[in-house]
Simulated assay, not measured.
Amino acid sequence: MEVRRLRILREFSDRGSVGAVADALKLTPSAVSQQLKVLARESGIALLEQDGRGVRLTDAGRALVLRADEVIAAVDRAQDEMASRRGTSVGSVRVAMFPSATALVLPRLLTVMREGGIEIVATDIDLTYPEAPDLLPDHDLVLTHRDERAPALASPRVTVEPLMREPIDVVVPPGHRLADQRTVAVDDLADEDWISVRGGFPVDDVLLSLATVTGVQPRITHRINDFTAIEALVAAGHGIALLPRFAVRNPEVVRLVLSGVRAARQYDLVHRPDALRRPAIRSVAEGLREVVTTWSG
């Protein structure tokens, strides 16, 4: 079996369609289909089956993808080692982060990595936690987040490493009836106008958890994923919000600690199981661990 064809099979598993693989690899759909057919002949078993108008992996295809991950990882490590022996660059490390982590973590990470001579190509992408593995075909490391009560991702093709717990606080405008307090009980927030993020993101998950505790459905007036915009709306008196502690920047809002309840988001580092065996990727992961120790939840 050729490694090139195994890569195409893995791309199909990751991207879900022949057309998407063709776009990613700059091939024609017919070329992708042909290579997958050749791989099936080489393996002696059907790897794809019809699924409506498209195709999907068979059980044998999914099993071969797991082995393809191992083979491709070994080849990539060999290429890295040969590049190191030649004294040439092993390339850059592709990192995806959710936007507020990009603002918090990326500047320090780039500084740390610059000292080690490693280049990072960073992208901010606002996806829900279950969607994080979808980024792995195009990124070596994905920094994502979830409500601390939510279960971690579980897949034989994905490794999840918890990095940091960030408390979530209440922010209110100056002059609010609670603004003179340092802490606030959940029951005191039952009759408020809330500004929240879109559903499926950790802050909204926490708000729903508070609703369960109080038995009162929150009155959400706006849903905005940009924390800077949320802070501006709160400062102008258009509602209150839950925000991650280290994301609060606007000096015009008042931050209150929730009492009697644990509310936080968990930072998780997501990558392929063998990714950290590549020196450059491992160094960036170590850099992330070093950077997040600056904060504690």
Rank of each mutant, 00 (worst) to 15 (best):
E161I: 10
P162G: 04
L163G: 02
M164D: 02
R165P: 00
I168P: 02
D169A: 07
H176Q: 03
H176S: 03
H176Y: 00
R177S: 09
L178Y: 03
A179N: 01
A179K: 04
R182I: 04
V186I: 12
V186K: 07
D187S: 07
D188W: 03
L189P: 08
A190W: 09
A190M: 12
D191T: 14
E192F: 05
D193K: 13
D193T: 11
W194R: 09
I195L: 09
I195E: 06
S196A: 14
S196F: 13
S196G: 10
S196H: 11
S196W: 14
V197G: 06
V197T: 10
G199T: 15
G200N: 07
G200R: 12
G200S: 05
F201Y: 15
P202N: 04
P202K: 01
V203C: 07
D204E: 14
L208P: 00
L208K: 14
A211H: 11
V213S: 08
G215Q: 11
V216Q: 14
V216I: 13
R219G: 00
R219H: 14
R219N: 12
T221S: 08
T221I: 11
T221H: 08
T221W: 03
T221P: 04
H222Y: 11
N225T: 00
T228D: 14
T228L: 10
T228A: 13
I230N: 01
E231A: 01
A232I: 10
A235R: 08
A235H: 05
